[in-house]
């Protein structure tokens, strides 16, 4: 591994300023792999903040990761709304049946408070401990589901699309409730020590809704929500497409975007130049069966397409690397970034 002079924090913020740091920053967004490190089941691992802290610190050391990722699982937020979480041995905890069984319940829905939502306190504690141990040398990435995307778990995707189109009064009420919760939850994480917030908003992607709907809905909601979050934000489309809405995304106030492996990276880089940093876009699903050579080639290809000039953080396309991805593959990804991601980049 080549020695570098910057801390992860300096490296990441230089890239976010659209300048070239010492090497390409790398966010391996590992959540469940911490359980493997500690020899725990996924359920045990997420039961204590201390486990997640230890897991994140070990993973950072192991792979030279440029961030700490105290994200537990998405269903935690619906749990705060009274939803059920289903754990499994080989994948992320998932939301159970929608917590809003009847759309009419939206009329009486109130946002949960962070104070009263004990399940969220574990995350805050993990962030506090990570902040204490990392001493501002590495960014700690907090995570929220966007108010516009959370209803997929609250209502179910099909019901949510119907609410969005056929029940504008219920849609507006739900957005108000979710915005209140999202802003409080994001700011609690910032207060606990998160450096930035990743705003997961897959429903805004053009894979899910047409660009003209985004202008009227997801865009406005993001703009209002992000303006109230007291820290920098990145927007993640969790494998959804965003090129057709990129100009609007840039106006939401977000600093970076998580992008799909299926979208053209060079085109995105060109469209985002000096406005948005790209985060991506290794295919996390395919990664499970990459050979050593494939892993190396994929990383080099992504670096060559998007890393010149800064404004790029290498990561996966979905915002969470599957449990099934081996340590060996993660090591190859990391080693390739260390060897081929040093600025100034060499031409292939």
């Amino acid at each position: 591994m080549k020695s570098t002079g910057m801390t992860s924090m300096e490296r990441v913020f230089t890239a976010l300023s659209h300048k070239e740091p010492d090497r390409v920053p790398m966010f391996l967004l590992l959540t469940m792999h911490g359980a493997k490190e500690l020899g725990l089941t996924i359920k045990e691992y997420f039961s204590k903040a201390e486990y997640v802290v230890e897991g994140q610190l070990r993973l950072r050391r192991k792979y030279n990761n440029d961030c700490l990722n105290p994200f537990f699982y998405a269903a935690l937020e619906t749990e705060a709304f009274g939803g059920e979480v289903i754990f499994r041995e080989d994948g992320p905890p998932n939301s159970g049946l929608p917590c809003i069984a009847d759309i009419e319940m939206i009329r009486y829905l109130d946002p949960p408070t962070v104070k009263e939502s004990k399940m969220l306190h574990r995350v805050l504690k993990a962030i506090e401990l990570l902040k204490e141990k990392s001493r501002d040398t590495v960014p700690i990435i907090g995570v929220v589901m966007s108010p516009f995307s959370l209803p997929v778990m609250q209502l179910g995707f099909d019901k949510y699309i119907e609410v969005m189109h056929f029940h504008p009064d219920l849609f507006n009420k739900l957005m108000q409730v979710n915005k209140t919760f999202c802003i409080e939850w994001a700011n609690a994480q910032i207060k606990a020590g998160a450096t930035a917030i990743c705003y997961f908003d897959p429903v805004s992607s053009t894979t899910i809704i047409p660009p003209e709907w985004y202008h009227k809905t997801g865009y406005e909601i993001a703009r209002q929500t992000l303006a109230s979050i007291k820290g920098p934000t990145a927007t993640h489309f969790a494998s959804g497409f965003c090129l057709p809405i990129i100009d609007y995304v840039a106006k939401t106030g977000t600093a970076a975007i998580g992008i799909s492996s299926m979208e053209d990276l060079s085109q995105l880089k060109h469209a985002c130049k000096n406005r948005l940093t790209l985060l991506g876009n290794l295919n996390g699903i395919e990664m499970r069966r990459w050979s050593k050579d494939q892993a190396r080639e994929k990383v080099i290809s992504v670096i060559q397409a998007a890393a010149a000039g800064g404004g790029f953080i290498l990561s996966d396309n979905h915002g969470e690397i599957p449990w099934q991805v081996s340590d060996e593959t993660l090591h190859i990804i990391s080693d390739t970034v260390m060897n081929h991601g040093v600025y100034p980049l060499k031409q292939s």
Binding site: D158, I208, P210, W213, F241
Partner: peptide, 14 residues
């Protein structure tokens, strides 16, 4: 082909 969204596919089917 990426020219329509999933919500349009869903509502059309419905």
């Amino acid at each position: 082909k990426g020219t329509l969204s999933l919500s349009q596919v869903y509502i059309s089917g419905l």
